[in-house]
Design a protein around this nucleic acid. Sequence first.
DNA 1: TTGCATCTTCTAAAAAATTAGTTTTGGAAA
DNA 2: TTTCCAAAACTAATTTTTTAGAAGATGCAA
Lengths: 132, 132
Amino acid sequence: MRRKKQDNSLLTEVELEFMTVIWETGGGTVHEILAELNKDQERAYTSVATVLKIMTEKGFLTSGRKDRALVYHPAIPKADYQKTTLKNLSSKLFNDTPAALVARLVDDEEVTNDMLEEMRTLLNERLGDHGS
Amino acid sequence: MRRKKQDNSLLTEVELEFMTVIWETGGGTVHEILAELNKDQERAYTSVATVLKIMTEKGFLTSGRKDRALVYHPAIPKADYQKTTLKNLSSKLFNDTPAALVARLVDDEEVTNDMLEEMRTLLNERLGDHGS
DNA sequence: TTGCATCTTCTAAAAAATTAGTTTTGGAAA
DNA sequence: TTTCCAAAACTAATTTTTTAGAAGATGCAA
């Protein structure tokens, strides 16, 4: 039987939550990560340990030892993963046209003019400041 | 025991695939949608019917009848869902700052200057064309 | 050297998502 | 009518994700 290949280039919901604190803190032992995570939601030690191991197998984390304890660190920078995610979203929901994605931000009332100005500045920096 | 509330404001992987063809085609009967979907991947009639029913319960589709057959149509425009998704992504991975998301597009080598120009044009249209 | 504390590894249950078989229903054909 | 067919509704199996207990390992203190 043909096993449905799973993706593994993207994090699951829970994995993303883990990864977020690991990017923020730079990582640490299972206990340290657990402590950080449990500010949001109670979880058992072993649950955290299991997910961390899986994430390592998937290539999102590296692991070493500090005394007897495992220490985990991000294997990829957050920016890289942001890029991967945007590429995925772009292809799945925006017809592979990233501009369409910006279009949606532009007509979202909740996005302020200040934010939009900021975006324009970013584009100007990369493109050069001359008008269209 | 406390049941882990599931989201329901976001589509699952498979649901998104369904929704994409329904947005494209405007919808139709189970058979019509099945035919369209199976261009990509073989699926049983009942599988498709089940997912469509679930999506209706979640509020993504409306359903009516054509003769005995159920006819499904999008309950929300694609643009709305794009917006929801971006808001979600922004909060989960970009610290609630949509500009950070654009920053990531800007420094992606695969995104061409033409695309970036297009984005800038969109921003200019909304903001007015004066410099920073 | 033994018993305890601590941490990992093994294992699997529980929940969510995906897929599809079986039964029921309602209308049309014979 | 009765039979037959197509489609929905019901039900359930399978897979993936999430959670966590139990068992095993390792070092340290008495």
